[in-house]
Amino acid sequence: MGGRMSGRVALITGGAVGIGEGAVRRLHAEGAKVVIADVQEEAGRALAAELGPGVLFARTDVTREEDVAAAVDAAVERFGGLDVMFNNAGIMGALGPIDKTRTADADLTIAVNLRGVLLGMKHAARVMKPRRSGVIISTSSPAALIGGVGAHVYSAVKAGVIGLSNSVAAELRPYGIRVNTIVPGAVVSAMTAEVVAGGVDDLAGAEEALGRTCFMGRPLRPADIAAGVLYLAGDDAAFVTGVVLPVDAGMTGAGGTSPFASGRYEEPVALLGPAASEG
């Protein structure tokens, strides 16, 4: 199978559903061998069976270092190496006011969303450094950059993913390893459906709910994020490291409503008041 990822091996945590599934499908379609590392066995095994022998499911709880290490080892043993590590597994985790936050919920959120990313980087690096090549991508969130759009602990750990990625990018650059972060906007997925619709299976409800507030005519879908992952993983991004790539229809960079798109200032005018001062 040809394609931009031909001859390469990718491991995707949280690869059984949602954004991870989209990335599995896209990288596989571009020729990569892919390891799906996820706790969701039924969905993960079904996806691997659908896509064929070039895709392996490895049951992986990213809070357990032995699981993450075993998934990386499985990629090496089954497919001969590891070229791309996509740390994507995540949960919404602890929800609620800060003064009522349950510490156990916070600890689990940190364990999955930040410690799991650190473990993925650690074990990817031990394979990639001797080969002096590789790509590590991790999923953050607009909640890392904008207050009020995510739960408190989730926002904190997703900001931590960016800081961790940039720090590791500086360390691994001399080894030819690129480390970047992707920031998806609200995506039609099980996680989003649980928050905005009738539950994890209500993808149609999520599509409808997100469609009412989307910036670009339709909600983001996993395939949109997968396109960003493909870019960061591929040769077109050969000199791209230590960056945060938003795939969010401008939510983090252009979240306001422009007065020049409609209404009073849609046609050009000049406000030429007193020239003395803007203040």
Rank of each mutant, 00 (worst) to 15 (best):
G2R: 14
R4P: 03
G7D: 06
A10Y: 00
I12L: 11
T13A: 07
G15V: 04
V17D: 00
L27N: 15
L27R: 05
H28V: 11
G31T: 08
A32I: 06
V34N: 13
V34F: 09
V35Y: 07
V35C: 07
A37Q: 01
V39H: 00
V39R: 15
L47M: 14
E50P: 11
P53N: 13
G54E: 04
L56Q: 06
L56R: 11
L56E: 12
F57A: 13
E65W: 14
E66M: 06
D67M: 03
E77K: 15
E77I: 01
F79Q: 00
G81K: 08
L82G: 02
L82D: 13
D83H: 13
D83V: 10
V84P: 02
F86V: 02
A89H: 14
G93D: 04
I98D: 12
A106P: 06
L108E: 02
I110G: 00
G116S: 12
V117I: 12
L119P: 14
L119Y: 15
V127H: 14
M128V: 05
K129N: 04
K129H: 09
R131N: 08
R132L: 04
A144Q: 12
V153F: 15
Y154H: 13
S155I: 09
S155A: 15
S155G: 10
A156N: 10
A159T: 09
I162R: 15
S165C: 02
N166P: 10
N166A: 10
S167V: 02
A169V: 09
L172N: 07
Y175P: 06
V183F: 06
P184T: 03
A190Q: 15
M191C: 08
A193W: 08
V196I: 11
G199R: 13
V200S: 09
V200Q: 15
D201T: 03
D201A: 13
D202M: 01
G205F: 03
E207G: 05
G211I: 07
R212M: 03
T213H: 03
T213Y: 09
T213D: 11
C214M: 01
C214R: 05
R218F: 02
L220K: 11
I225H: 07
A226G: 03
A226W: 12
G228R: 05
V229G: 05
L230Y: 09
Y231G: 02
Y231K: 05
G234N: 04
G234W: 12
D235P: 12
D236R: 14
A238R: 10
F239G: 02
T241L: 03
V244E: 10
V244K: 10
D248V: 07
M251W: 14
G253R: 03
A254H: 15
G255K: 06
G255A: 04
T257S: 02
P259T: 04
A261F: 05
A261V: 01
E266Q: 11
P268Q: 12
V269K: 15
A275I: 00
